[in-house]
Amino acid sequence: MKWLAQFRKKSPWILHYNAGSCNGCDIEILAALSPRFDLERFGIVNTGNPKQTDIFLVTGPVTFHSRERLVELYSQIPEPKVVVAVGACTSTGGVFRGMYNVEDGIDRYIPVDVYVPGCAASPQLIIDGIVQALSILEKKNKAIEKPFRLFGGIKRIGKKISRLTMAKRIGEEK
């Protein structure tokens, strides 16, 4: 089925999820889709459906409330898929690093292919990152990719909910 890869490259669809960012990168993604920068010339359409998605754009350090949704969305995207981390706080935690409700970057949870720097990442950089993601998408095959962590039940230590034991690496859930 190698001939399908060409169609995939000519018309990749993106899914955008905000995992706790400040909106700065999100409006820059919207600006990249608008006529001045025109991301749509690469055949890109912004879809809201993970099941039709090739490129997963994530913004924001992962907050505790949104990490379950992030892993769920990633699992629902069919292979081959590429993850682009947009912005400084998505890559490393940025200014939010060490705040009590924040994980430092999305690569604790899902494998990331392209990191886009900047606070906020400019539309030019976002386009550059997506074009790089396209060349990675071309080389990928149907091998199944899994998130690093999944969720078990809620565990309590005393009266408090333990956040550390909730998310475990795959293979050590039990």
């Binding site: 706790g20 409330h65 939010f96 705040m99 009590y100 924040v102």
Partner: peptide, 15 residues
Amino acid sequence: VGFVHRGIERACVTQ
């Protein structure tokens, strides 16, 4: 509405 809570008010006085 709490998906984006990061704890900035707390970090402003400790971090």
